[in-house]
């Protein structure tokens, strides 16, 4: 790699993970239902990571032990990797078991939409609601709902990775030889980038002038990042680690306004007409 130490590197990505929504605190029923599901599709569930959703349980003010649920899931070959919708006490139980806790900030107002989205995600991931049939028919008093809402840690993102707000860095001075610029989001450079200078961004790079130095976009692994520049004379361009040196940039597009992007791990450089 060009821009990180050889020992390790950090990248961020989005995973789809089945969410196990529990509607009962009856451990035996949960175990039995899960066993049945697994026997139907053993390969699918084998070593499957799961996020445990206990919001329904808390809404219904059902008593349960996170430790007990986690142990049960592990016993039947599943890997619980997260808890959502837990109370403070349940969250601390999960953390003791080294299980990350989702502490989203969804409000009750979005609960319905959220429920739909959750269902969609679960379907996307091929997981059904294993405990649906043992739904407990208790009344949901307004009081209980309010308690649940305050105790509920909702999710906005469908993944365990929080979505970072996009930040753009603007550079108006020339980037001289030997200077390095790192932008955690997008990078916009209005001046020239000299040979021997290095500009890096986790997002896209725009250079509204001559690019003579090195430009590395998507340095944390964002393969959809792009580089745009008005006059391509770069020493090196890279997107998410795939790079081309000036030697491999064809003459036809040199000194032209271009955009650079990744397509099937190939770095494409196109003139912007």
């Amino acid at each position: 790699m060009l821009n990180s130490s050889s020992v390790l590197e950090f990248k961020s990505t989005t995973f789809f993970t089945p969410i196990l929504i529990l509607n009962t605190n009856d451990i035996a029923a949960i175990e039995q239902t899960l066993q049945e599901k697994i026997s139907m599709a053993p390969d699918f569930f084998k070593h499957s990571p799961l996020v445990i959703d206990v919001r329904e349980l808390n809404k219904s003010e059902l008593d349960f032990s996170v430790t007990e649920i986690v142990e049960t899931l592990r016993r039947i070959g599943l890997f619980p990797i997260g808890l959502r919708g837990g109370t403070e006490q349940q969250n601390s139980q999960a953390q003791k078991l080294s299980i990350p806790v989702d502490a989203g900030r969804d409000h009750d107002a979005g609960a319905a939409a959220q429920h739909d989205r959750r269902a969609a995600v679960a379907t996307d991931a091929g997981a059904e609601n294993p405990a649906a049939e043992s739904m407990n028919g208790e009344d949901k008093s307004p009081k209980a709902a309010a308690t649940a809402a305050s105790a509920t840690a909702g999710l906005t993102a469908q993944s365990a990775v929080p979505v970072q707000p996009v930040r753009t860095m603007l550079v108006t001075q020339p980037v001289r030889s030997g200077q390095r610029i790192y932008a955690p989001g997008d990078l916009v450079v209005m001046s020239q980038v000299s040979a021997g200078a290095e500009i890096m961004a986790e997002g896209n790079i725009h250079v509204y002038n001559t690019l003579r130095g090195r430009a590395l976009a998507g340095v944390q692994g964002n393969t959809s990042a792009r580089i745009f520049c008005l006059d391509l004379q770069a020493e090196l361009v890279s997107i998410a680690g795939d790079y081309k040196t000036s030697e491999h940039i064809t003459k036809a597009i040199q000194k032209k306004p271009v955009q650079i992007y990744l397509q099937d791990h190939a770095l494409i450089i196109n003139e912007i007409a």
Partner: peptide, 11 residues
């Protein structure tokens, strides 16, 4: 190029 580098240091 060396001058360019100095300009970077000045800046």
């Amino acid at each position: 190029r060396d001058s360019d580098r100095m300009l970077g240091i000045l800046a």
